[in-house]
Design a protein around this nucleic acid. Structure first.
Lengths: 212, 212
DNA sequence: GTCTATAGACCGATAGAC
DNA sequence: GTCTATCGGTCTATAGAC
């Protein structure tokens, strides 16, 4: 590399890379738009025309990137899963497991309040099928679940999380914060700041409604 | 017959009442079907053809009872709201307010697990408009909210519910049990009975994830 | 005869797919 | 830009209960 034995690498390769970058950038813009629309109105209400319009490309171009509406949604789910993985990576795992779990819940709620949490209404069959056959998504979900599962067990072992609860119930309870309607309700009331809302829901989630 | 004191009451009146009963019964069957389908697949995915097929009547007949799909959904919401009111009526209000709130949360989750809780995905504009102009629904919602609000304040006053939480946050948290996805997740795992699931979610709701 | 419900065609609009 | 399917909603003509 020091003597640069590959002059073509300085011209042709970057050119090729540029096209790839453009392709990736466009795909990224598409997925970001899908992500936003999915968070705003859900899968059924989202139309691919809207997606094309938001990205500013022709609808036909969308199908050059993704073969169907389901795959569009799946790509958005993969994206948010990767964001989750990146967030987990950023955590200092030497902290107490309970604090780690709280951080995850907080992040999840922040994403939702920012209107960036895609929601898949109930159990759409076609979408479900697409997702379960999407390896990046399933792998990401398993990775996240296993990491959280480890922290949950550690938190139960050190006595900070209720050991009477099955770990899977704790895991699902944390996941459910991603689509907790209480956030939107409180936001809609206009009475509280985002930080206050997150504080309240974090409190009800970990400390419960009852007085401690 | 001529000596009968109430000939018309024994023939004409019941006849008229019979028709009304039929009309009401059919309408009830319609609303029940809508309720089920709404719980199963949500508003967008539910088609009025499905409703007609499930009830076993012609689609045109549906429109003799309800002017639009939105009104169909609204009727289902009114129905569940009336069921909620009836349940509140059945409660012994001399019990501690915390127990009353727990009973309400339990009932809500039982209805959802039974597949009888209609879900209105996010914020459909047309549906929202129909609902907010539906007096029976709005009145029912206000009645339920006020009764729960009273118990919440009482529970905070007697120290059983965390007084640091705004009553509205507690109210929304209880309402959110109606669409808590954790119930479905745990049900889908096949590991627990309905009663166990309700017990867990009741525990996380009132006692939180942290050890007490 | 009258009223009502039914079946099923039908329309217009929209959205997914290409 | 086009094709096609679907869906909400309407219309008509027939059947049947009173």
């Amino acid at each position: 590399m020091s003597s640069s034995p590959l002059p073509s690498a300085a011209t042709a390769a970057p050119k090729r890379s540029f096209r790839q970058q453009m392709h990736i950038a466009r795909e990224d813009a598409i997925v970001a738009a899908v992500n936003r629309l999915l968070a705003e109105k859900g899968f059924d209400a989202m139309t691919v025309d809207e997606v094309a319009a938001e990205v500013g490309i022709a609808k036909a171009s969308l199908y050059k990137h993704f073969p169907s509406k389901e795959d569009l949604a799946a790509a958005a789910m993969v994206r948010v899963m990767q964001r989750a993985q990146a967030f987990l990576d950023s955590l200092d795992t030497s902290r107490p497991p309970l604090e780690l779990l709280k951080s995850v819940a907080r992040w999840t709620m922040e994403v939702q309040l920012a209107g960036e949490m895609p929601s898949l209404p109930s159990e759409n069959s076609s979408l479900r099928a697409t997702l379960t056959t999407n390896k990046p998504y399933v792998d990401g979900l398993m990775d996240v679940s296993e990491r959280l599962g480890g922290w949950i067990q550690a938190a139960q072992a050190d006595g900070s999380v209720n050991p009477a609860l099955p770990p899977i119930a704790v895991l699902y309870t944390l996941y459910a914060r991603a689509c907790d309607p209480v956030l939107g309700f409180l936001k809609g009331s206009g009475l509280y700041t985002t930080e206050q809302i997150i504080g309240m829901v974090l409190s009800t989630c970990f400390d419960g409604l009852r007085t401690r």
